[in-house]
Amino acid sequence: MASSDVPLHSEVTKEQFASYLSQYPAVVEAISQSKGAKDGQKTLSELDRYRYVDAVETFSLKGQKREMDLDDVKMLVEWKLRHGKFRPTLMSLVSSNPPSSSQTIHFAIKFYANSKDAGSAIRMLSELKGIGPATASLLLSVHDADHVIFFSDEAYYWLCCGGKKESIKYTPKEYLALRTEADALMKRLDVSAVDVEKVAYVLMKQPEAIKGSKVDMTAETKAPAKAAASAASSSSKKRKTGSSGGSDKKDKKAEVTAAKKDATEDNAALRRSKRLRR
């Protein structure tokens, strides 16, 4: 989605925000189906339920049922890798933390509960292997989903880059900028941090969801896809002249060219994602 198609967070209305938020389940389900899952692996939709429902109900400071351990961290990291950019070495780094690392998590969360100092708590969590400010913010977010924004790429693109997919270094300074913008939006529209995160995901991921979708989207989501399909059909009909065989060959050649282009772009994206910590 081009930045010109993304509404500025400073100008989005409460009604628009609610509309985008309502589209999140369909967008994430479409992406989940397009990605699929290996045998024994949870789908993105299943991991999404854990991140936004089960984990929040278990670890929320409003009524915490138990303290987070390393297995919980790995589940959230798995969600993060499938929900956003995949980083092949991140899970192995996180898994290399000893069981005693749970004490670091407990200390950081208790510190935050007493101080509400998210920045310092995230620095404490970042002492763990494979845990940078982004993953640390995720761990803190499930404990206080109303006030702590997860440092996702999509949230940073929308709130700090005007919808442009610019380079992110995943530094504490960048996270502070994200929190500042998120807090202003949350206060202006009276919305939660977790809802800001979901709206950002919809705005930055919606075209990808439409492209790979096997499920029904909302009316606003289906309209662009329907129009594009109609235009493509019309264009195809116009191309059909005397010899249908020649037209079929051109279409197949175009499909092969497009597939090669997609594969090249995917490989380039993978090379750009070699950062181990975020």
Results as ranks from 00 to 15, higher is better:
2 A>L: 12
4 S>D: 15
11 E>T: 12
12 V>C: 13
16 Q>E: 15
16 Q>P: 10
23 Q>L: 08
26 A>G: 00
36 G>T: 02
38 K>S: 08
39 D>W: 09
39 D>C: 07
40 G>T: 10
41 Q>H: 11
45 S>V: 04
46 E>P: 04
47 L>F: 02
54 D>V: 02
55 A>G: 12
63 G>H: 12
64 Q>P: 00
70 L>M: 15
73 V>L: 14
79 W>M: 14
82 R>L: 13
83 H>Q: 14
84 G>S: 14
87 R>H: 12
88 P>V: 08
94 V>A: 14
98 P>R: 09
101 S>I: 03
103 Q>S: 11
114 N>E: 13
116 K>R: 15
117 D>A: 15
119 G>P: 00
120 S>I: 09
125 L>F: 04
126 S>E: 03
129 K>Q: 09
132 G>A: 09
134 A>P: 05
137 S>G: 10
137 S>C: 14
137 S>D: 10
140 L>I: 01
140 L>D: 00
146 D>A: 11
149 I>Q: 06
151 F>P: 05
152 S>T: 00
156 Y>G: 10
157 Y>S: 06
159 L>R: 04
161 C>Q: 14
162 G>F: 00
163 G>E: 13
164 K>C: 08
169 K>C: 04
171 T>Q: 06
174 E>L: 06
176 L>A: 12
185 L>E: 07
185 L>P: 06
193 A>E: 08
194 V>A: 10
197 E>T: 02
206 Q>E: 15
208 E>C: 01
211 K>A: 13
215 V>A: 13
221 T>D: 01
221 T>A: 01
228 A>W: 08
232 A>S: 14
235 S>P: 02
240 K>P: 00
245 G>D: 11
247 S>R: 01
248 D>A: 11
248 D>T: 10
248 D>C: 05
249 K>P: 00
251 D>A: 04
251 D>C: 01
252 K>A: 11
253 K>G: 01
264 T>K: 15
267 N>I: 05
268 A>L: 10
273 S>V: 03
274 K>P: 03
276 L>M: 09
277 R>F: 06
278 R>E: 05
